[in-house]
Nucleic acid binder design. Structure first.
Lengths: 338, 338
DNA sequence: CTGCATCACTTAATCGATTTAGTATTGTCG
DNA sequence: CGACAATACTAAATCGATTAAGTGATGCAG
């Protein structure tokens, strides 16, 4: 079954076709330098022998690896968002014949240098994440999914979702459904997207003359901290709507609120800033922002490819691309829409 | 900020140290052939210059890529299981200085040949998946996570969870909680794990003199098909317990059952054959099998590494490794345990 | 018919490391 | 002192491709 034939090399093709390796190379790569007749003959023979060029050798010559490294934040395996985004990245990479590798989180210190890629994609960089700094220091072309949280840092490109708009949309939706005292529950990790939602929330509250009510959760103890925060909000406040920043958190809010005797979609509205399949499976479904993660991933990769091709001078301003998003209304914010 | 220095080569180190490239190579790789004094000098200089060997060149020489390709089934992004498993794989790979790439699903036909890896890891191969066949045909050393569904196919190694045991455990648990007519809801895709659960279920039913009640869902329309199946089970049957094979499916069952007026954990017990964070976030929490995906992933990679090192003859029997699992009891199967 | 360009190739250098085969020096033993 | 071995190197081949430089044959213009 499994062929043990050592792979066919260009040299063998050339010898079989009775030409030099160079001629064979020209023929196969479509470059000028051989007659049409020879080209056809070489192509024919190459396909007969099942020749496929040795990537590694090509890489060595071209000093390119054809590899894009992707860094996903740690402790977030709960979010299907990253999985989808990663698949989007992989799909788009394939269009440019690039392969995608995952950067391990456990990288202690030195080994990160052996990261052997043409470019780097960092999703949701968090200010607390020390690995992000070390990755940036590598000097590779970098595109981030969502902005870098630290204004001192900078990448060659970034893809951004308009969280301000969707946040306002949700808060307005809460409001017009009769919930005037929304609270938010956000992770302690400071990422650009969560910070921007927080900011928009605060702005919204100011415009509506409401005191903001912000609770924090930690990613690694999501259920406990979220439930604790939820209890706090429900016990001592007039809180009638909760925007949870992560999908998992929203589920925990819903569970805790039910236990607490509240009726979701009726006397307590709930929404999540990140959609996930689970939010549509549960009853009632949870209103959430569809970030189109797959498409988002594709955009990230696409931008990186363009940056690699253009090998433009690293200006101070990163190339910025915006990704479309949409609020998906479900029963958790009232039975209004479907 | 970003260094533009072209990378330091061995040649430069050698010249700076006034030795030949070979000597420098010996010194750096710890091989005999140089005096201790020279070795130290070379090491010193290498670290001063910030030398780091060119992976690609090493790969060309050794005809190894240091890359392990991972293939995840399509349409399953919902399952946090794969995300966790993948991280486990990446972590374990790092221990052997291997990088992990993801195989794109969209690979139509030819490009799959350009897969440039030392080994291949296939998670949950499905019989319906044509890509799996083409991957196996590549002739790379392959380890599968869960067995290959087709007895004609074979891999060099496989890591398997004992689904029979946990299935029986759950069905027994249903039984002793008073639910004597369990049904299962399983994906149409035939994967080794789902088939083995189905088999164990049928066995169990025979032993308990109950007619099996099996419903199928399709992965790409999970909510609709699951809800439809659930309705069917609840309407025309005595069904008092449902084992859903996927986490998302279990949530949909729960939602549909509630709508249907059943009380989960009371007059309808629910469990999932795959745990996920969401199952613990919801209320009531859903009993599920913890497959330790992270550990599972590590085991897969570890087995593959051992196979690569041993370059053993491809005997007919794949090396088989078993991964530990445990049922996690939650309120959906009665308030018994915590 | 000479001069010069063009074409269709081939030779050889190159990418950056590893490794084999050789060479010069030193040391040891009989 | 001469033979032989061990040591510490260096020169060159190698991995498999790409590509710059070189060569011989042909064509065409002057």
């Amino acid at each position: 079954m499994a062929q043990k034939h050592p792979p066919v090399t260009l040299k063998q093709v050339a010898e079989t076709a009775q030409v030099s390796r160079a001629a064979a190379s020209f023929a196969l790569s479509g470059k000028p330098g051989v007659s049409e007749a020879t080209r056809q003959r070489v192509l024919q023979i190459a396909s007969e022998l099942g020749y496929s060029p040795n990537q590694t050798a090509q890489n060595l010559r071209s000093s390119r690896t054809g590899i894009i490294a992707v860094y996903l934040p740690e402790n977030v395996s709960t979010l299907s968002y990253y999985m989808e985004a990663t698949f989007g990245i992989v799909d788009e990479a394939e269009l440019s014949n690039l392969t995608v590798t995952l950067v391990p989180h456990t990288s202690t210190n030195a080994p990160i240098a052996r990261l052997n890629a043409d470019g780097l994609l960092i999703l949701d960089p968090a200010r607390e994440d020390a690995i992000v700094d070390r990755l940036l220091a590598l000097g590779l072309p970098v595109v981030t999914g969502e902005a870098l949280p630290d204004p001192n840092q900078s990448a060659a490109g970034q893809v951004i979702s308009d969280h301000r708009r969707t946040t306002c949309e949700i808060l307005d939706h809460f409001h017009s459904a009769g919930a005037h005292f929304p609270a938010i529950i956000t992770p302690v990790e400071r990422m650009a997207w969560s910070m921007s939602i927080e900011d928009s929330y605060i702005d919204w509250c100011q415009r509506h003359n409401v005191t903001p009510r912000i609770e924090h959760t930690s990613m690694d103890e999501l259920t406990e901290t979220t439930k604790f925060s939820t209890r706090k909000l429900l016990e001592d406040g007039s809180t009638d709507a909760i925007l949870a920043l992560t999908d998992g958190s929203a589920l925990a809010v819903a569970a805790q609120a039910s236990e607490h005797g509240r009726h979701i979609g009726k006397d307590l509205l709930i929404a999540a800033a990140v959609d996930s399949p689970a939010l549509s499976y549960v009853d009632p479904g949870v209103t959430a922002v569809d970030l189109n993660p797959r498409d988002f991933g594709r955009r990230c990769m696409n931008l990186l490819v363009r940056i690699l091709d253009s090998k433009r001078a690293p200006t101070d301003e990163p190339l910025t691309e915006y990704a479309p998003t949409a609020v998906i209304y479900r029963a958790s914010t009232g039975a209004g829409n479907s």
